[in-house]
Design a binder for these strands. Structure first.
Length: 619
RNA sequence: GCGCCCGUAGCUCAGCUGGAUAGAGUACCGGCUUCCGAAGCCGGGUGUCAGAGGUUCGAAUCCUCUCGGGCGCGCCA
């Protein structure tokens, strides 16, 4: 017997870790019923071989089942035999034969084969996929959703651009990406809280207020020298004009007063930072707190309102707009600093207060209170992240621009010092998108105000194309955003390609009406065996992948997996469409085919929906 | 200089976290509509996976080094 041969190479060893403590969140291999059933068969086979002595009893292999890449390898495959080869000290193919012999075929499982270096390939009958089609039709827009997250709470903070100007195309990627992963996580059973952190305090906002005020003085007829470090965009003029309309000249002060004793600006041979800080101080003094606040808030409200409108039109919704100012109002920043001090990782040097983040792996220590008594942005961020974790989320996700990557270690260090769990925080970095128009790079520089706004982009290519293109590539990858391609209504454009597939199904059903034919869905479900074409098999199999793709895209924070999947699915559909007619005389066949294409339409609509892209009835 | 990310077809990118012959789109060439939308389909070829070592049954994937590109290294945010 073969088992004798195998028994000779008995040895002990442990494969994998049966007591894996990996949190479910990081489980990256999605499950489905067929896969689980096959895994169970293999597990049973291993046990059987262990009890008859063919395999060592003290090993607990992790059984992995994968979809095959090539249909000649069947539908699913496992590398189990190759994993067992080492501890069992046997040839993989010998073990594979033992395993296969221990499994009975039957039901959906038509055939098992051994191939290549020792893969075990499972071949399923066509009817294995039929239930999936009926599931899609029954579950409709809920299909693909799962309770994988079991209601665990996740907070996703994204965009969070300073309200000092309109959103630009860089923020757009963070918006599309953050919204997509939030929706994806929600779809697989997490309770997601979407949040925008509003930096409505701090120096940048003061610079905006000063910029607005100076433009306002200009409108009052004063002759001003606009600071090099001020915000130069036209929107500042608009805000100043509103201010002037509402207050007339009531806030006016002579330019000589405003600039009195202010250090020289850079063009005049001075320091632009000192110049603007001096201006801010003068303006605050002259206007006094109440009036200064009026100017400040005029800018804040106008810009924040613009940002909110932009995101809303982009299909990006938030549960909360968290104000940085509310942190100071609650003394949260001070409390955070005090707690850090108690942790013993804070010291004073040169009049400033430093957090010893190097104790937790950061490159250098960081200032939390400046020598002028002002707390730093970092101090606010410590308080904010502490606040997030104290709100009891199971996971906290930050989506940041990749240029902030150096900032990650210090935030995690602070959380560690405070006894919070830094591992609950995932910082996802998103690279800037480079725009191309007619093959040329679109030049952009933020400071000069010469950047393409998100709104301009949306108006140029449309919300659908913008949302889709932004998430088409891996987040941490730089991406080239081809404006002409995004605009083009051709097969080159993946968005149109997918939407067209959806519209085509709708169109078929309109034709059904015109031809006065009928669609009996129940009969279709009962007669799916009529779908015997290869194209139909292919489509059914790929439809069954949707829940897995969704889960993988969500858990790995990779919406691009979904865009690629949808493109493949659309391709399967178009191919099928060209090869076969759906509206045939044979009612049984017609019903089955209409069930299949309606299921396809549903999955496309569901997938696009999660990406914030519309699924049109006609193009 | 130090740290992080990256290098895959002419171009833009995937590659299911170590698996089978490395794949799509685009570009280029040629075909397919009396028929549900041709914004579609079919066919045709392309690789020193930047390079060199290493780890093992097996590497584009993990480790080290080199080369090349991006970003970050403030009492800015």
């Amino acid at each position: 017997m073969k088992s004798g041969k195998v028994a000779r190479c008995l040895t002990s060893g442990i494969i994998g870790n049966p007591f894996s403590t990996q949190p479910t969140y990081h489980r990256r291999r999605p499950s489905n019923h067929l896969k689980d059933q096959l895994a169970q068969l293999l597990t049973d086979a291993v046990v059987k071989l262990q009890t008859n002595g063919a395999l060592p009893a003290d090993i607990t292999p992790t059984v992995m089942i994968e979809r095959t890449r090539d249909r000649s390898h069947g539908d699913y495959a496992s590398n189990l035999a190759m994993l067992l080869a080492k501890p069992a000290r046997c040839k993989p193919r010998d073990i594979a034969e033992q395993l296969v012999a221990a499994i009975e075929t039957g039901g959906h499982l038509q055939k098992i084969a051994i191939a290549g270096p020792g893969f075990i390939n499972f071949f399923l009958g066509p009817e294995a996929w039929h239930a999936g089609i009926s599931d899609i039709l029954a579950q409709g827009d809920q299909f693909g959703r799962s309770d994988h997250g079991k209601g665990a709470r996740i907070q996703v903070e994204f965009v969070s651009a300073n309200p000092t100007g309109p959103l630009h195309v860089g923020h757009g990627r963070g918006a599309a990406y953050g919204a997509a992963i939030a929706d994806l996580l929600e779809a697989i059973g997490y309770v997601v809280h979407r949040e925008y952190y509003v930096n409505d305090a701090g120096r940048q906002m003061d610079i905006l207020a000063a910029s607005v005020y100076l433009r306002y003085l200009d409108l009052c007829g004063e002759d001003i020298m606009f600071p090099a470090n001020g915000y130069q965009g036209d929107y500042v003029w608009d805000i100043a004009a509103t201010l002037h309309r509402e207050h007339g000249d009531a806030l006016q002060h002579p330019v000589a007063e405003v600039f009195r004793e202010v250090p020289a600006d850079e063009p005049a041979g001075g320091d632009k930072e000192k110049h603007i800080d001096g201006l801010i101080t003068r303006i605050r003094t002259l206007l006094e707190e109440t009036r200064y606040r009026q100017v400040f808030d005029e800018g804040l409200t106008a810009i924040l309102g613009n940002i909110r409108q932009d995101l809303k039109e982009f299909g990006v919704v938030y549960d909360d707009w968290f104000s940085e100012r509310s942190l100071s109002a609650n003394r949260a920043v001070e409390t955070g600093i005090e707690r850090l001090q108690k942790s013993g990782h804070v010291y004073e040097q040169n009049g400033a207060l430093w957090f010893k983040s190097t104790d937790f792996g950061d490159e250098k220590d960081r200032v939390i209170v400046r020598d002028n008594g002002q707390t730093t942005y970092f101090a606010s961020d410590i308080a904010y992240h502490l606040n997030k974790l104290e709100r009891g989320y199971d996971r906290v996700i930050d989506v940041w621009g990749a240029d902030h990557h150096g900032y990650v270690p210090r935030v995690k260090a602070a959380l560690k010092a405070l006894g919070a769990e830094p591992d609950k925080l995932d910082v996802l970095l998103v690279q800037f998108a480079i725009l191309y128009r007619q093959g040329e790079k679109v030049a952009m520089s933020t400071r000069s105000g010469q950047f393409v706004t998100l709104r301009e982009l949306r108006h140029e290519v449309g919300n659908d194309a913008a949302r889709f293109f932004y998430v088409m590539r891996k987040g941490e990858q730089h991406m080239d955003f081809d404006l002409d391609l995004a605009k083009s209504q051709s097969n080159d454009n993946p968005v149109y390609y997918i939407q067209y597939a959806h519209a085509r199904v709708r169109s078929v059903f309109r034709q059904l009406q015109e031809k006065q034919l009928e669609w009996d869905q129940a009969a279709g479900s009962a007669g799916l065996t009529a779908l015997s074409e290869d194209h139909e098999q292919e489509l059914m199999i790929n439809l069954s992948r949707y829940p897995e793709v969704l889960e993988a895209a969500a858990l790995n924070h990779e919406p691009h997996l979904l865009t690629h999947y949808l493109r493949e699915l659309a391709n399967d559909f178009h191919t099928y469409y060209n090869a076969h007619t759906f509206l045939v005389e044979d009612a049984a066949l017609r019903n089955a085919r209409l069930n299949l294409i309606e299921a396809t339409r549903q999955v496309i609509a569901n997938g696009l929906g999660l990406l914030g892209v519309s699924a049109p009835d006609n193009m």
